[in-house]
Design a protein around this nucleic acid. Sequence first.
RNA 1: GGCCCCAUCGUCUAACCCGGUUAGGACACAGGGUUUUCAUCCCUGCAAUAGGGGUUCAAAUCCCCUUGGGGUCACCA
Length: 516
Amino acid sequence: MSQVRTRFAPSPTGYMHIGGMRTALFNWLWARHCGGQFILRIDDTDQARNQEAALRPILQAFRWLGLNWDEGAEIGGPYAPYYQSQRGALYQEAAQKLEAAGLAYRDFSTREEVDADRKQADKEKRPYINIRRSLELTDTQKADLVAQGRPWVLRFLIPRDTKVQLDDHIRGHVEWDCSLLPDPVIQRADGSPLYNFATVVDDAQMQISHVIRAEEHLSNTPIQILLHQALGNTLPQFAHVPYVASPGSKEKMSKRKTEQYRKAPAFQKMFERADEVFPQLGLGNSETLNPVMVEYYERIGYLPAAVLNALGRLGWSLDDSTEIMSLDTMVKHFTLDRVVQAPAGFDPDKLFSFQGHWMKELPLDQKVAGCLPYLVQAQLIAEPVTDAVRQYVEQIIVAWGDRLKLFSDILGARYFFRDDLVYDEKMFDKRVRKEGVPAHLAAFRQRLVEVDPFTVPNLETALTAYCQEVGEQTGTLIHALRLSTTGQAVGPGVYDCLALLGKDKSLARIDAALAR
RNA sequence: GGCCCCAUCGUCUAACCCGGUUAGGACACAGGGUUUUCAUCCCUGCAAUAGGGGUUCAAAUCCCCUUGGGGUCACCA
């Protein structure tokens, strides 16, 4: 096969959509699988807003996930520039070429006229296509109108007597009857190009071999194919990937619908998590950062490997049983013909389970590196982080074990850094304020004074010995100690907790609990 | 509404192209075991071919229809 070149062409919207990320991943995967190039082009035709700021989160999402691009934004390349806003001359040239060949025409009709035509067609229950009045104008009439300063747009002349055929890598054979297609505007009165046109010009000029994009572009495709043909371009291959649906629905996931996702059972936990974590980090809450955006996953402490794995398995499979896949594995096996045709609902639970897997695989030093920023941002530890603190955090992470799923879970270790404990009152009542327990706790507290060094094995020996002597179950003391020293009913092993806290703090907290 | 796409457990999917499997796996859920918490880990269970017609010895698989779901219909991208 000749050189494979794929592209992802986001418009700078200020955030990276998780569904768009999946499409980008498939493009990247196909390029890498084939040893080709992946291009990141910016579709910023007539965007008034702040480019820089609106683009940053998108590029950051690619960097975070490790999806590098061979040409495009920031790095340039042989087909530069890669920003549509800077490629005006190319579009002008192509538009002139079409007009000169009689394949596009100047349309002098006003928006009002077009709207009226459309309404009329609607009323008569027939499909709307352009009436093409401007086509009947003589050259002198047209020149007059131009002289009068009448604005016009350039429309592509759809060849109404043909059919467009597409053999899509995912959808298969699709056909459209051109007699039903309105003539699309390809250039505005001010000379700026429209998306459908700019895309065609760019894809051809950048030698894109495979246009892999979301299904919602399928209806744009006949026009683009026609445009390519009119321009004399070699047609790229097309692959229309089904869109990503929101959890528990079949509808395309959309940022505009975040309010309803907030209440959807499958999504709810992610929003709650955001409201719990982000305020502690000074990052707003689920209003500012929600699970539709890639940045949510980065900020809440997901691993790129987990997000990539989940995205890769959404609408694509390697075989009948492989679930856990590294990026390398996906590159090795990815093919377009194994992309599923039906929309896939995003599944937060499954992502979470992938996360559990990849977090378990992560070497300790990387876990520490991942958690440290959270502790700093939540002001639980100071910056710069000293070796002693770093070591302490490492010990906590070891004790935390597989309970640490997201990096932000480390915020649950607050009681190792702060003395104002948050008590789980219900459990405190159940495990501490219970017949006989305070007495045991007080008695064992005295034994603790003698434990030296204050280590896990010594603590365990002491507790077992005490319980045997007094004929009490170890569980009674274990639970009481955990509630007293951490305030919580769940967490790392209680001996780990005591050892990590050290003798002084442990004793003080037991005293405080007994005094409550 | 026009055009187009889609349809297997609750979810993601395998098997479909080239008809023959007790329709497989994973997540979730339920139960059990290990860890006197929780998490991990192990075992077990639950659970699907939308409906109707064809074709065929045989249909999840091929064809048609119905139903349902979705996307798109801009001088947005």
